[in-house]
Computed example of a mutant assay.
Amino acid sequence: MSRIGKHPVAVPAGVDVKIDGKVVSVKGKLGQLSLTLVDDVSAELADGKVVVKPANDSRRAYTMWATSRTLVNNMVKGVADGYTVNLEINGVGYRAAVQGKELVMQLGFSHDVKYPIPEGIAIKCDKPTSITITGFDKQKVGQVAAEIRGWKKPEPYKGKGIKYDNETILRKEGKKK
């Protein structure tokens, strides 16, 4: 039995959840998201909570039970509060700034790296060495953060590159004479 799946998803005030067959739609102050559940899982709205249950006793139903519940929970939390990922830039001359609808980064290349900001995502650079990515879709926020980090991953010798603020870089010792 799933330990995560058996807990219902609480719907906070200001969030509207509609279940139409296999489609779960969530609307809140930050935006609107929808999810199509797999055939092996069903969802229902009861007492202001979304209850996700397996439709049958198959292995796939039990596998997708907790996954579907977590996806619904992420949608509800996203439209109510939103998600934030912070990135830090380390390195001499490495910096970032938002110009219009683009994130412009100097990362030691011969040219500036221009990253177009997707719809539904907000990027702020309070300092030239910090990037804050916010949005209501957890998957999209994480994907944007991973793409930005992918331009210059942190290296283990000097720690130069773009890293998550809670990430620890394992440092290596340099060459010896």
Rank of each mutant, 00 (worst) to 15 (best):
F109D: 10
D40G: 01
Y94R: 00
Q106Y: 08
G93W: 05
H111V: 07
K127M: 05
Y115V: 10
T36P: 13
I89P: 03
I133A: 06
K101S: 15
N74I: 07
I121W: 01
V85H: 11
S34V: 00
K29F: 11
K29Y: 09
L33A: 07
G100E: 15
N56Q: 08
K49W: 03
S58A: 09
P116E: 11
G48T: 13
Q32T: 12
D47C: 01
Q139M: 08
G28N: 06
S34H: 13
L103W: 01
M75F: 05
V92K: 14
G48W: 08
D112N: 04
K124S: 05
K22R: 05
S110I: 14
R69C: 08
A96D: 05
V76C: 03
T63Q: 09
S34M: 10
G100T: 01
N86F: 13
V23K: 00
R60K: 15
V41R: 03
Q99H: 03
I133V: 11
G135T: 04
S68R: 02
V72A: 13
W65L: 09
M105T: 04
V141A: 02
L107C: 05
E88N: 14
K49V: 03
V76W: 09
T70I: 04
K77A: 11
A96S: 15
G142D: 14
R60V: 11
T36M: 08
K27W: 09
G28I: 13
K138M: 04
A97D: 10
A55F: 11
V76L: 06
V41W: 04
L33H: 02
V23N: 06
D47H: 01
S34T: 03
I121T: 13
F109G: 14
E102R: 15
I123M: 02
A96C: 07
L71D: 03
V76E: 10
L30D: 02
M64W: 00
G31T: 05
V38G: 12
L35C: 06
D57E: 15
I123C: 01
L35N: 07
D39G: 07
D126Q: 04
Q139G: 01
V51Y: 08
T129P: 00
V113H: 10
K124V: 05
K127N: 06
N56V: 07
L33C: 01
A46L: 12
Y62E: 08
G120E: 14
A97S: 13
D39E: 14
K49F: 05
K140P: 15
S58F: 04
F136P: 06
V23F: 03
S25Q: 13
R69H: 04
Y115H: 14
A55C: 12
V113Y: 13
I121K: 00
K22C: 01
K22H: 08
F136Q: 06
A46F: 09
N56K: 04
G82D: 14
G28W: 03
D40V: 15
C125I: 08
P118R: 15
P116L: 07
A66I: 06
